[in-house]
């Protein structure tokens, strides 16, 4: 723990204080059109950008809840150019204490993880929270890479996270049940649905966000190990074959003989 005060006057009571880092990414709104202005360039024209939902709804909100219960601070970090600052301000409006933008291109998972790990290395965070993947690249590996770079314990896809002293209890929903993990802080967590509920920033939060610190840090010049050579659209559906509701029984025959999926 960053700050640990033990009062022995009473029965031993530990007042905790969590220093939490939440990694956020800028992604197109979930309803945004997907088009490309060049073979390997996403067409941002007219697109509204949001905080990646997994980062915002689950990682950030759970971090704020832990801070509210245990005391401490929540810092948000994002790797990107100046156009990432609106989403950092949004995170500050939701309740984060300060924001950090690392001034580097979001080139690949390795480079992003390296930039964040180099920043976090000097900051002694008790916990680094990320969403389980972005809805843009669907990679899901940045938090695991950060964990390895900093030699920290890591749980992917946690749907529940509680802290007790320097220990954490996490749950992960799997197809056959719920896995329960115990580990020690500091640690890295990739958050999934269930960990918290979305919070809408109120006017006071939006006003307060304007004056909260947003520090721009230089890149450590991490070099990407992969690049996107082109984007394609998935093959279009050939059209929907309609079946009259009274003939619904035919569906099974069509799925067997024509589609060959049963």
């Amino acid at each position: 723990m960053a700050f640990l005060f033990v009062f022995t006057t009473f029965a031993t009571t530990i007042f905790e204080s969590m220093k939490i880092l939440v990694c956020i990414s800028k992604v197109p709104d979930t309803t945004a059109k997907i088009a490309f202005s060049a073979p390997n360039t996403y067409d941002e024209n007219g697109v509204t950008f949001i905080i990646n939902p997994y980062d915002e709804w689950y990682a950030l909100v759970r971090a704020l809840e832990l801070k509210e219960t245990l005391g401490g601070s929540v810092t948000v970090v994002s790797v990107g150019a100046a156009d990432y600052e609106p989403i950092i301000r949004k995170a500050l409006a939701i309740g984060a204490d300060d924001g950090v933008r690392i001034d580097a291109a979001e080139s690949d998972a390795f480079a992003v993880a390296k930039e964040i790990a180099e920043y976090a290395r000097s900051q002694s965070f008790d916990m680094i929270l990320c969403g389980k993947e972005t809805i843009q690249y669907n990679g899901g590996v940045v938090p695991g890479m950060i964990a390895e770079m900093l030699q920290l314990p890591y749980v992917f896809g946690a749907s529940k996270l509680d802290v007790n002293g320097t220990n954490a209890v996490l749950e992960r929903e799997i197809a056959t049940g719920i896995e329960v993990f115990h580990t020690s802080l500091p640690m890295v967590v990739a958050a999934a649905k269930g960990m918290a509920e979305q919070r809408i920033p109120n006017m006071r939060g939006i006003m307060a966000a304007r004056t909260k610190p947003l520090n721009v840090l230089p890149s450590c010049n991490a070099q990407a190990k992969t690049h996107v050579s082109k984007f394609d659209m998935p093959p279009a559906k050939s059209g929907c074959k309609m079946i009259a509701p009274e003939d619904a029984a035919q569906l099974i025959q069509l799925l067997h003989e024509e589609a060959k999926v049963i």
Partner: peptide
């Protein structure tokens, strides 16, 4: 050089390792 889904399956990207 390998393909993967991006934009939650709304597009496919071709990724090259160095």
């Amino acid at each position: 050089t390998v393909k993967k889904n991006v934009f939650s399956g709304k597009a496919i990207s071709e990724v090259v390792t160095n």
